[in-house]
Simulated assay, not measured.
Amino acid sequence: MNKPLPTMQQASQEAEFQLSAAKDVLEWQHALIRAVHLDHLHGGGQGIGTLFEVAKYFNDTGFGGVYSAIDQFKTLGESTPQNAQSENVAREIGGDQ
């Protein structure tokens, strides 16, 4: 089923949301890395397995929306007609023969 292309405003709003979500996931991953380091230093690494499971979960689920937003922008960019100004410049360079 073909869905209609989103408008540029809709696509940019979705991209903003997805980038914000990706930023959150990166911040959570950074906190996990710090927790792994602290566990290694102070806990002998006893909690590292559990922390890695959480990190794997973020990796498996965190960026799916970002990839779909990228695909939307690609599709939108490929479907946008050429600017009339670009056509006029090409006509002037090539001449009307």
Rank of each mutant, 00 (worst) to 15 (best):
M1E: 11
M1I: 10
N2W: 01
N2M: 11
N2H: 10
K3V: 03
K3W: 01
P4V: 04
L5F: 10
P6W: 02
P6Q: 04
Q10S: 09
Q10W: 00
Q10R: 01
A11W: 08
E14L: 02
A15C: 07
A15V: 08
E16W: 10
F17G: 11
Q18M: 11
Q18Y: 06
L19G: 04
L19K: 02
S20K: 13
S20D: 04
A21S: 08
A21F: 02
A21H: 06
A22T: 06
K23T: 11
D24Y: 06
V25I: 13
V25R: 07
L26H: 04
E27C: 00
E27A: 07
W28L: 12
Q29P: 01
A31N: 04
L32S: 06
L32P: 08
L32T: 03
L32A: 05
L32D: 05
I33P: 01
R34I: 03
A35D: 10
V36A: 09
V36I: 14
H37W: 08
L38V: 00
D39S: 11
H40G: 14
L41G: 06
L41C: 11
L41R: 15
L41E: 13
G44P: 01
G45M: 05
G45D: 03
G45S: 07
G47T: 07
G47P: 05
T50C: 14
T50D: 15
T50E: 15
L51I: 00
L51E: 03
L51Q: 03
F52C: 15
F52R: 15
F52I: 10
F52G: 15
E53H: 02
V54F: 03
V54S: 09
K56S: 15
K56E: 15
K56Q: 15
F58E: 01
D60A: 09
D60Y: 03
G62F: 07
G62M: 06
F63N: 05
F63G: 03
G64P: 00
G64R: 03
G65K: 00
V66R: 04
V66S: 08
Y67W: 11
Y67K: 14
Y67D: 14
S68R: 14
A69R: 05
D71M: 08
D71A: 12
D71S: 13
Q72L: 10
F73G: 14
K74Q: 06
T75A: 05
L76E: 02
L76G: 06
G77L: 11
G77F: 10
G77S: 14
E78N: 08
E78T: 01
E78R: 05
S79F: 03
T80W: 07
T80R: 13
T80L: 10
T80E: 07
T80H: 09
T80C: 07
P81S: 11
Q82G: 12
N83E: 07
Q85C: 05
Q85N: 14
E87R: 10
N88G: 03
V89A: 02
A90Y: 04
R91L: 10
E92Q: 14
I93Y: 15
I93V: 15
I93T: 09
I93M: 15
G94W: 05
G95D: 02
D96K: 12
Q97N: 12
Q97D: 13
